[in-house]
């Protein structure tokens, strides 16, 4: 038990030391949903967290490169991609979907029915 706990703490401390990097993102919106596409090369599915809470979307992805041999040059290494966005409160959290494809994180944030634009018809008097 205590061993597992120390392990968790160690892992946490280790992750805190990782360099934090902003991933490049594209954001799209239509009447039904918001889409976020973020470049995260080298991040595995199990190392991604997507969190929507109280109007904030927080994404994180940890990358660990296999480290064997001596590097003649190294332009990229282990890091944590982090980014936060304000999103409307009207996002339906239960229906948020995330997918990782070729190192790109694709997030789909559906809007709730009440938040969708509505055309108001004027009744004849």
């Amino acid at each position: 038990m205590s061993n597992a706990l120390t392990k968790t703490f160690d892992k946490k401390a280790e992750n805190n030391q990782l360099k934090k990097v902003i991933p490049w993102v594209d954001i799209y919106e239509n009447d039904d949903e918001i889409l976020v596409h973020a470049d995260m090369p080298g991040v595995k599915k199990e190392d991604v967290t997507v969190n929507v809470d109280n109007g904030t979307l927080a994404i994180s992805g940890i990358r660990r490169m296999p480290d064997k041999g001596k590097a003649a040059w190294r332009e990229f290494t282990d890091l944590e991609y982090v980014r936060k966005y304000a999103v409307p409160q009207s996002i339906e959290i239960e229906r948020v979907e995330a997918q990782l494809k070729d190192g790109v994180l694709l997030i789909r944030l559906p809007k709730s029915e009440t938040a969708k634009p509505r055309t108001v018809t004027i009744k004849a008097a």
């Binding site: 001596k70 003649a72 040059w73 332009e75 990229f76 290494t77 070729d102 190192g103």
Partner: peptide, 22 residues
């Protein structure tokens, strides 16, 4: 793209960041 070149006794490994490419 950013790249790494790692050398081992019998092989080289090149790694390149290419997000979104198939």
């Amino acid at each position: 793209p950013k790249t790494n070149l790692v050398e081992n006794s019998d092989h080289f490994e090149i790694q390149a960041e290419v997000p979104g490419l198939s």
